[in-house]
Amino acid sequence: MSVMSYLGAIGAAQREAMEADERVVIMGEDVEANVYGTTGGGKSRSSEGDFLQLFGRNRIRNTPISEEGIVGIAAGAAMTGLRPIVDLSYSSFLYMAMDQFVNQVAKNRYMFGGQASMPVVFRSAMFYGLNTGAHHSDRPYPMFMNVPGLKIIAPASPEDAKGLLRAAIDSDDPVLAFEAVKLWGLKGEVSDEAFRIPLGVARTARKGTDVTLVAISGSVPDACAAADRLAEEGVSVEVIDPRTLVPLDTTAILTSVAKTGRLVVVEPAHRTCGAAAEISALVAEEVFDALKAPIVRLTAPDMQIPFSPSLEQQMYPTRDGITAALRRVTGLKPA
C-alpha cells in the first residue's frame, strides 16, 4: 500500500497499463509535457517517470486542438488494433466531438453487427467549483448516459481512480472517465499491486440502516461527511457511490433502499435528466413499496454556471444541504 493522490493514482494506472500492453497509447493535448499531471513523474522532462522518456512518441503523443478529429482517430485506431487512452483535458471539450462519440464510437459495433470492437478510454476532468466560468465547468456525464454503447466511470477515491481506470483500459468497449478536479488532491491508501475494480460494481462508502444516500463523483466526500454528522445524532446513513454510471449497479442501490426505505441522491450535474433523476426513477419503479418518505434529489439547478466565487458556490450540493436533506427524510428536526 502507498498513500496516493487521486491524480497520482490515475497516473499510476496509466503507467501500469502502458507497461503491460504495447497496444496502449496515450494521446491528447499537452500530454507530452504532463500539463495535467497524469503522464509523468513531475513537471520536468528529466523527472523520473516522464512518459515521453519511458515510452517514446509512438506511445504518447500530443495532438492538435482538434477534439472531433482526435476522438475519431482514436476510434478508428481502436477498431484496428490499438487501445488508446485519450486525454481530453476538460469535460467541457467533449461537446466538440459529439458526432464522433455518438455516431461512431457508440454505434459502430452495433451498426456493423458486432464486427468492430472499440477498446478506447476517453478521460476528461470536470473543473467545476473552481471559478472557471460557464465554458469550463461542465459536468456532462448524464448526456453520455443517454447514449447506448458507451460505458461511463466517475471514480471518487484514489483507489477507485486507479482500479477503475485499469478496468476501463482492459475493456473492449469505449469508456468515458469523468474525473472531478476537486478530487485531484484527495489522498488515500492505494494498493501497489496491479488491481482492477470491475465496471458496474458500486462501492458502499458507509454502511447504514436508516437512509440510503447515493452520491456521485465530487459529491461523495461531502456525502460521507454528512453521513458522519448524522451518525453523531444516531441516524445511520448508508452511502453508496455507484462509481460506474454505465453499467449502473442497480442491485446495490435497490437492495439498500429496500432495507432503509429512504433515498437521497446527490450529484454535481444539472437536475433535468441527470443521473439522480435516473436513479430516482429506478427506485420509484422497482422498490416503491419500501419507501417511507419521498425521494430527494440534490443537484445543480438547471442554470448555467456563473463565474464569481460568490455566485458559483451556491450552485452545487453542499455538506450542509445534504445534511439537511437527510434530516428531512428521516424525520429529524432541522439543526
Binding site: 482517430i73 476510434a75 478508428g76 477498431m79 458526432d99 468492430a116
Partner: peptide, 28 residues
C-alpha cells in the same frame, strides 16, 4: 461494413467516417 475485405464501415452522417480511416492509418 465488411471487415473481411477491410471495409471499416460506411456512414450515414456526412463526413463522420473520415477520421475513422485516419485512425486506422494511425494504428497501422
Amino acid at each position: 461494413a465488411d471487415f473481411s475485405v477491410g471495409s471499416l464501415g460506411e456512414s450515414g452522417i456526412v463526413g463522420s467516417s473520415i477520421p475513422i480511416a485516419a485512425g486506422s492509418a494511425f494504428a497501422s
